[in-house]
Write a protein that binds this DNA or RNA. Sequence first.
DNA 1: TCATTCACACCTAGGTGCTAAATT
DNA 2: AATTTAGCACCTAGGTGTGAATGA
Lengths: 573, 573
Amino acid sequence: MMLAGALDDAMSGCKARATDFSIAAIMSRGSAAANAIRHPSSPPLQIGKLPETSIKSEDELDPHNLDHAEDIDVDAVSEREDNESSKEDASSLIGTPRRNSHNSHINKHSNHSSSQNGLSNKSPRHHQNQSPSSPEPMGVGKEDDEDNHSPNGGAGGRPIKPTKLELRVRGNCQDLESIPCHLETKELWEKFYELGTEMIITKTGRRMFPTVRASFTGLRSEERYAVLLDIVPVDSKRYRYAYHRSSWLVAGKADPPPPYRLYAHPDSPFTGEQLKKQVVSFEKVKLTNNEMDKGGQIVLNSMHRYQPRIHLVRLKEGQSVPITDLDCEDHRTYIYPQTVFTAVTAYQNQLITKLKIDSNPFAKGFRDSSRLTDFERDTMEGMFADPHYLGARLPGYLDLDAENNLIEKARTRLIWGGLAALTSQSGSSPHQPSPSLMTSPHQFSNLPNLSSLQSLPNLQGLYGLNGAARGSPAASLPIPAHLWSQWTALHGLASASNPNPALAAAAAASHLGNPQVSAALALASTSASSPVVVSSPNGHITRPLFPAPLNLHRYSPYFLPKSSPQEPPDQQS
Amino acid sequence: MMLAGALDDAMSGCKARATDFSIAAIMSRGSAAANAIRHPSSPPLQIGKLPETSIKSEDELDPHNLDHAEDIDVDAVSEREDNESSKEDASSLIGTPRRNSHNSHINKHSNHSSSQNGLSNKSPRHHQNQSPSSPEPMGVGKEDDEDNHSPNGGAGGRPIKPTKLELRVRGNCQDLESIPCHLETKELWEKFYELGTEMIITKTGRRMFPTVRASFTGLRSEERYAVLLDIVPVDSKRYRYAYHRSSWLVAGKADPPPPYRLYAHPDSPFTGEQLKKQVVSFEKVKLTNNEMDKGGQIVLNSMHRYQPRIHLVRLKEGQSVPITDLDCEDHRTYIYPQTVFTAVTAYQNQLITKLKIDSNPFAKGFRDSSRLTDFERDTMEGMFADPHYLGARLPGYLDLDAENNLIEKARTRLIWGGLAALTSQSGSSPHQPSPSLMTSPHQFSNLPNLSSLQSLPNLQGLYGLNGAARGSPAASLPIPAHLWSQWTALHGLASASNPNPALAAAAAASHLGNPQVSAALALASTSASSPVVVSSPNGHITRPLFPAPLNLHRYSPYFLPKSSPQEPPDQQS
DNA sequence: TCATTCACACCTAGGTGCTAAATT
DNA sequence: AATTTAGCACCTAGGTGTGAATGA
């Protein structure tokens, strides 16, 4: 509650009267409270509906000095990592095939924000978003969503009670109150949010992904507007990632804040006329940790949590674009809690990495097995077909250097590909034709749609399975079990009820562990257009079978901790 | 003279008082007059210095209705093509090695427009153009250039007396008179201009190359400006290209003009502050022949001649960017005659193609022999080394299909490469780091510098010459002789005085014609870092040796006319 | 130990001229 | 016969995560 205030106040203090039209997101944390660790990606939101409140300038905060703000309950648990070995971690949804519940949740959200159902960029060329039906209701909190159980956890795979991610709006200008804002690609943002969004920051600057995209309605055609983006701290904490638990922990007070920057969309100013017809995409904005910010990049602290904000400014007569202080402008601020993220220099949560790879076209090269070279493919083919590799080399599968890591590479690819099959709706590029109004090209209509799964035709053709392999018992995951559960929980996949015989066989003997064979089995399942969900016969996700390669970085998606706990039992309340 | 007026009037009629500060380019056409054909790329310029003239709106023309404008003398010759077989065509500069005269001409121009000497984009990052020394003098015509003999011909290789390409400025606002404009990459523009610039137009839109880039000084920091580009017809003619003569002829009256478009630079409006510090690049502008111009493209008629114009508009308080009528704005117009071009759907002049390929990074793939695949290289290597190919296959060199056109491909590449050696200063990419101020990346410092020539190391290593080939007599060009002369004339290369023994041998027996051998010989010369200039012993450029492949498009650079005239004698006055 | 950086391979996006085919 | 079009290979430009190396 205090936290919500802190974030609200983070708006660079409007000296004019400001009004809060927002309805705070409703986040019930009760049932998960016992599990203690609240995921930092849980947004700092007000609970319940607040009446309009007038905010005085004394209450305002410098966006970078939120030290007096109360933090989320996350610091109450700070250092409890290690081996409480949470058994509730993995199987929260095992045996509960509610594969579509998540989707329906997403769709409902989409509906209520104008005609963007599922595929947000079907035909952005003529941008039909604004034209019809219900505009984004501002500050109207629907509380009828109790049945919309998002498996939102944030908290490392621990499902938490329904979370409502609702736009919060602030402003200092009565005239702008009638202007709703719509966050494009909201579904994608929410997918990331549920895992705990991370954004890479680099010295040279890194784009955000997902991209902040907004569209507006109710504008005055003749008026001139600027659209701006800034990113403010969510709290005054520094975080660290507990790899074994795959959760974020507070690591101390926030570092000194880097210089604040208000990023104006390069196409600003817009006329109301223009703005009505287009989506404002902040794809070009870059995040950096380099204070020597030469060129419009936003400087952030790594391992800190941030909230992007969208500002609509109505320009005065003759006013030019450079805007340094929102206080001095008639403006309206839109805050989408689902865009909260943690700035990192390297991804912490492997599932975030995976979601990025699966949804960002520029990372397509890391999808599935596409990175295997022809040589590698040939070699792999030989290995899988050759009994020498399948049999004699079994005891030595740790000796990866001898093969130049080839086996491991292909192995991880195979399984990574299996993972990809869980989310990739289509192998085609999600490229969207960019109309002249659209400064840029990335939209993602075919976001991972969880109800439709994809096969891996490449592998299917390339890696023949011989009879021996097909019958051999094994199953494995290159990702820690608790992540598995996090993933399946979020995507509503029941690992127990697997219609694929090959998968069933693999699951049935998951603890016996022949890596190659298990990979091959997983592969067989993907070639049958089924999700690669492998569980042990007792319904629990098995602990990863592949030993960690010797030279992998701790943060590599292929890295496995040497002594990670077996997957914890379902803890869903 | 009338023509100049026509162009001037093409400015979308300023209703306010307008002043002409310009000095017309001086183009002496006297000596070339007898040769009749005036190249259409000769700019329609006023001759001599004009005093400031006030232009009344009655005098103004719709940019697309210039029908009453007098045309250049080009129409006096309209249909005289065919086989007067101009003997003056080729050797205009043969034996007259004034290799540097052209460059010095260029440099002089550069000097007088602030500190941009030779390489226009040395360090655009901090854009030193405006800071120091002499600003662009507006409307000041220096007449001290009589010694600056640009081998400007336009007219298909017929050198014409010195041509002065000078900025012409117009405007309706006294306050803007103190603002000079500088055309970046002027050297490149002039290189194209000398050959007769062509710009491709396509249905989907094609960028201009070279790009119109301008920089300004003398702006008021606090003022807001817009920079715009439009492209107006030079005359009311339609043209056609006489391939055999490699010159443009009038083909009739102009087609109905497509809708006019005033293209505002997307970064507009600029503050004076911003504008002082950056180069305004119109690289994004696209030319099309599609009237259904969906999205800011400029629609032109193919086979018509056009003049780009740069407009600086001072914005009024609160005025937004969309500007539809210059009349209503305080503005100043800058016209660079060297940017005149002919709109085409396919290149007509092969030398234009070649210059584009050599100077546009995006066309790098067509440079030299870079398009030979490894397989092709291997095969070629074998062919050149194998006496079977060099000997037995000689009579059958027309039978290209049997080799899947491989020989011809390599052959044309070889010679194309030889041509490239004449202009490519460096094999490295002319890429320029794009500072934040620079919307985009293409500048070209290492334009073909005619005084430094490049070898073709690739070919040198790949295609070994056996003894027999080395001694064999042959020389050839895949480009018509008159083009050859046009090229060498423009670049001041004397084909007679060739220091390379291999080349001399080749030239000595140019009429005997073994294609492979001649190619090899040409290659040998390039490997010695010498220009591939091959002439017959009598000092005349030889007619191309390679017979035209059967299936080549007439406009293909590899196509040779079946009955082209031998090269004409020097006609330089 | 944890965090950051860098060269790299692999992508997207789109600008080139080439050239066969279509169009007029 | 002259022009225009469309698919192509080949480029530039730059956005991805990788994984080893480097810092704190």
